[in-house]
Design a protein around this nucleic acid. Structure first.
Length: 498
DNA sequence: CGTCCACCGGAACCATGGGCCG
DNA sequence: CGGCCCATGGTTCCGGTGGACG
């Protein structure tokens, strides 16, 4: 993109609007005198907010005992040095899949340390790392890094040994923590070994983010895993996204690795939102991956209440919640296919709102407002981080909506989009591409696009905005690359008149 | 009925930007 | 360096299509 961030042609934008914008964009901490004093003196509501964040992995997951035990039973094999069956985990968002899996893997790694069995879990989120190349590269890099650390450790050990040998050569023979069964007959032999190790280490470069042939990355990864004896559990979260975007090659490669590995074993845990995603898989992959399947059903309102109860005891000060807060959060989230993450979000946001009001307890009202806020925040965030072209498309839709045209069709949007691009000096994408962008917006839940046939008058997408107009507009106009847009709108407006 | 609109959406194909290797 | 590999995101091309209209 060649357009400079044009500093700022909109200083004169009307004040009301600016205020609005700030409200939308930031969690503004207002308080004009003694900024922090007020906030500090206010009755604190939270004891420990972390517990309510999605990133937190709880030690106890209510109503997930069965699934967890199930996983554990399968994975103990790793602690015996055998290859555990591959596992597929199904369940909608916020049903505790990831949390449970992470919990189990933590336990697994902990136990493996206790008994000194080499066993590791690698977590990969396939929504972020969504191509074969990237998955392999990331895996390769973590293992390579580990191997380097391993070599360092070993070298350290040997140097100590060497040191000791200076004083008392007998340590060389009676070395009991010698796991490679190497015997050194002289201090020089130790040196040599160290030398060799360091040479190997020098070979262990990271895989670059892009550029290599995939099979080479694969080879590198293979080598890295096999470097020491271990069981590697690879956890692929949102595995359906990976399959969707880049096919099942990755899974195929991973699942047949075991037959060729000398020292180590790999086992895969796939986590999926989509029950049917195995339909697209090669039957071989399907059967090897789905050796064990575990389903996480959605929580019902009661279970959600338990979870919230559980966490709120840690998260909040005593008596900070009024009676109906938790049931209400649970009820809202239960409507949303039993999403626990949502429930926790709701509770946390409600707490934050109460806190900001300097109130000492969270009320039902806070929860309702939290519900709105979360939705708005989500939209703002999504829209803000949209690529420029998508923003333009969205803006076009917005403009149409502004002018009272509802259920717009692709052609109209494309026309407006074109004029917008012209005025802003941006590249104009083809209609084909714009269709895709619209579909993306649809999937993000920002617009609603349905293909309808208008008989004689063709077949098109009927598009309508599913987010509040003003807020969205504010966010779009906050983008520096679109900052000239206000000067442009008159031109577009003119188009409507003919 | 058949026609035919105005776009959908798959597939094949380019352009770009990253990187390796000799 | 030039020749090669790769992924990504865009473009070109084009067959496909639901249903109001004649």
């Amino acid at each position: 993109m060649s357009d400079e961030p044009t500093t700022d042609g909109r200083r004169t934008a009307d004040r009301d609007f600016e205020v609005d914008l700030d409200d939308v964009l930031e969690d503004d901490e207002d308080g004009d005198e003694g900024l922090f004093d007020d906030l500090l003196s206010g009755e604190p509501i939270f004891e420990n907010k972390e517990v309510l964040r999605p990133s937190y992995t709880p030690h106890e997951l209510p109503h997930r005992k069965d699934q967890i035990n199930n996983m554990a039973t399968i994975l103990v094999a790793a602690l015996r040095g055998e290859t555990p069956s591959n596992i597929l985990i199904y369940g909608k968002t916020g049903t505790g899949k990831t949390a449970s899996a992470k919990f189990v893997s933590q336990e697994l790694e902990r136990t493996s340390q206790k008994y000194d069995v080499p066993c590791e879990v690698e977590y990969i989120n396939c929504e972020v790392t969504d191509t074969q190349y990237r998955v392999l590269a990331q895996l390769a890099n973590t293992f390579i890094a580990q191997n380097r650390a391993f070599v360092d450790e070993r070298v350290e050990e040997l140097r100590d040994l060497r040191e000791a040998a200076e004083d008392d050569p007998s340590v060389l023979e009676s070395d009991d923590d010698n796991d490679d069964h190497l015997d050194f007959d002289s201090p020089e032999a130790v040196d040599e070994h160290v030398e060799a190790l360091l040479e190997e280490k020098a070979e262990m470069d990271d895989v670059p983010m892009t550029g290599w042939p995939t099979d080479r990355v694969y080879a590198r990864f293979f080598e890295a895993v096999d470097y020491v004896e271990r069981v590697a559990v690879i956890m692929l979260d949102e595995i359906d996204k990976l399959v969707e975007k880049s096919g099942d090659d990755t899974l195929y490669n991973l699942s047949r690795m075991n037959s060729e590995l000398e020292n180590s074993r790999v086992s895969i845990i796939g986590i999926s939102n989509d029950l049917k995603f195995t339909d697209f898989l090669d039957p071989r992959v399907k059967s090897s991956l789905g050796e064990e399947e575990i389903v996480f059903p959605p929580y019902d309102a009661n279970q959600l209440r338990d979870i919230l109860q559980h966490r709120s005891e840690v998260a909040f000060k005593e008596d900070a919640l009024s009676e109906d807060v938790i049931p209400l959060c649970a009820a809202f989230a239960a409507q949303e296919h039993g999403d626990a993450r949502r429930a926790l979000d709701l509770l946390r946001t409600a707490g934050e709102l109460a806190e900001r009001d300097q109130s000492d307890s969270v009320t039902e009202e806070n929860v309702r407002r939290a519900q709105d806020k979360i939705e708005l925040d989500r939209v703002v965030e999504v829209v803000r981080t949209l690529p420029t072209q998508s923003k333009l498309v969205l803006y076009a839709i917005l403009l149409l909506e502004d002018n009272g045209v509802h259920n717009v069709n692709t052609g109209e949007v494309y026309n407006i989009y074109k004029t917008l691009c012209d005025e802003l000096d941006a590249d104009v994408l083809t209609q084909r591409r714009v269709t895709d962008l619209i579909s993306e917006l649809d999937m993000l839940g920002i617009v609603n696009a349905v293909v309808v046939s208008k008989g004689r008058y063709g077949r098109t997408k009927e598009i309508s905005l599913s987010v509040p107009v003003e807020e969205t507009e504010a966010v779009l106009e906050a983008d520096s690359r679109l900052s000239d847009i206000e000067n442009v709108t008159p031109f577009v407006q003119a188009r409507f008149d003919n």
